[in-house]
C-alpha cells in the first residue's frame, strides 16, 4: 500500500509526458523562447506544419507564462520570507509562551483557506485597494526603482498575485521556522543568551546560523507551493495574453492559470496539439515544482519538518 503514492506519481509523470510528447517535438525550443500562445483558428481545417496537423496560425510559446510564474512567486517569497521570520521571532521569543499555540494555529489557518476564497477576497478587497490607492502611489513616488514606473491600469497582476501568494505560503515558512527555533537545543540557546546575546541576536543567529538549513528549506518549500498555485492567481493575475509584463503593475498569466484558461478550448480542438501543448506546460510546471520541493526538503532535512508535516505543503 505504501507503493501507491509512488505508483500514482510515476503514472502522472508518465501520462503527462506521453501526452506532451507531440508538443515537445512540434515546438522545440520556441516553447521557451516565444511568448506568443495562439490556439489557432479552429473554424478552419487544420494544416500540416513541421509534420503535425495543427489549426491554422497555432503557436505555443510559454515564455509569458514562465515569466509570470517566476515574477509572482518571486515577489511572494520576497514578502513572505521576512514577514514569516518576524512573525516567528515574535511568537517564539517576544510573546509569552502560552500565546504561541493559538497564534501559530491562526497563522496556519491561512494555509487552510481555499484558494478560490483568496481569489474572491483578492477581487473584492485587494484589487480595488491596489488600483486606487497603493499602485498609483507607488507609480508616483517609487518610479526611480526599476520596474516601478509605469501606468496603473488594473489592480490585477504581479502585485496582487504576489501578495495573495505570500499569504498562502507564509504559514508554511512560519511553521518551519517556529519548528526549527523550537528544535534548536536549549543548551545552544542558553549558551547564546549567557554570552549576552539579546533576543534579536539569538533569533538572528538561529535563523542564519544554527537553523540556517531549515530557514532556506522552508523558503524553498514555500516557493514550491507558490509556483503551482492555481485558482487564486488565476483570479487576480489579469489573464494577460501575448504581452510580456513591462512593469510591476502589469497583468500576468501564470503557467497554472494558463492551463485552466486554455484547457476548455483545447478539449474541443480536433488535432489534439493544443491539449498536448498544455500537457507540455504541465510537465514543465510539474518538473520545476518537484525540483524546488525536493531541494527544499533536502536542505531543510527531515528533522526540521517534523511536526509541521500535517500542514499544507
Amino acid at each position: 500500500m505504501s507503493l501507491v503514492p509512488a505508483f500514482v506519481l510515476i503514472t502522472i509523470l508518465a501520462f503527462i509526458l506521453v501526452y506532451a510528447w507531440p508538443s515537445i517535438v512540434f515546438n522545440g525550443t520556441t516553447f521557451f523562447t516565444s511568448y506568443i500562445w495562439n490556439v489557432g483558428i479552429s473554424s478552419r481545417p487544420p494544416v500540416m506544419v513541421r509534420g503535425f496537423l495543427v489549426p491554422p496560425n497555432a503557436s505555443f510559446g510559454a515564455l509569458l507564462f514562465i515569466e509570470s510564474t517566476l515574477l509572482s512567486s518571486g515577489l511572494a517569497i520576497l514578502i513572505a520570507f521576512p514577514v514569516s521570520f518576524l512573525v516567528s521571532l515574535s511568537v517564539e521569543l517576544y510573546l509569552p509562551g502560552r500565546a504561541k499555540r493559538p497564534l501559530v494555529s491562526l497563522i496556519e489557518l491561512f494555509a487552510g483557506i481555499p484558494s478560490v476564497v483568496y481569489g474572491l477576497w483578492g477581487i473584492v478587497v485587494l484589487e480595488p485597494l491596489l488600483l486606487h490607492n497603493i499602485e498609483p502611489w507607488m507609480s508616483a513616488n517609487l518610479y526611480f526603482i526599476p520596474g516601478f514606473s509605469g501606468e496603473v491600469l488594473t489592480g490585477s497582476g504581479i502585485i496582487a498575485s504576489g501578495l495573495i501568494l505570500s499569504l498562502m505560503i507564509a504559514p508554511i515558512i512560519t511553521s518551519v521556522m517556529v519548528n526549527s527555533f523550537d528544535s534548536a537545543p536549549s543548551e545552544i540557546k542558553q549558551g547564546l543568551v549567557s554570552l549576552g546575546a539579546t533576543k534579536w541576536e539569538l533569533g538572528k543567529y538561529l535563523a542564519t546560523g544554527y537553523s540556517r538549513s531549515s530557514t532556506y528549506g522552508g523558503a524553498l518549500l514555500g516557493l514550491g507551493r507558490a509556483l503551482g498555485e492555481t485558482m487564486a492567481v488565476l483570479m487576480v493575475s489579469g489573464g494577460i495574453v501575448n504581452v510580456l509584463p513591462t512593469s510591476i503593475y502589469s497583468g500576468i498569466n501564470t503557467m497554472a492559470a494558463a492551463i485552466v484558461a486554455y484547457l476548455d478550448s483545447a478539449i474541443g480542438q480536433g488535432t489534439g496539439i493544443n491539449l498536448s501543448a498544455l500537457a507540455e506546460l504541465s510537465l514543465f510546471l510539474l518538473a520545476i515544482s518537484l525540483v524546488v520541493n525536493l531541494l527544499g526538503r533536502r536542505i531543510a532535512g527531515r528533522g526540521a519538518l517534523r511536526g509541521v508535516e500535517n500542514d499544507k505543503f
Binding site: 537545543p185 543548551e187 545552544i188 542558553q190 549558551g191 547564546l192 543568551v193 549567557s194 554570552l195 549576552g196 546575546a197 539579546t198 543567529y205 546560523g209 544554527y210
Partner: peptide, 20 residues
Amino acid sequence: DVELRREIGMVFQRPNPFPM
C-alpha cells in the same frame, strides 16, 4: 540583563559549542 551576563559568565553541564 545583557550587561549582567557579560559580567557573569556561564559554562554548562554538557559542552555546548556552537556549530561554527
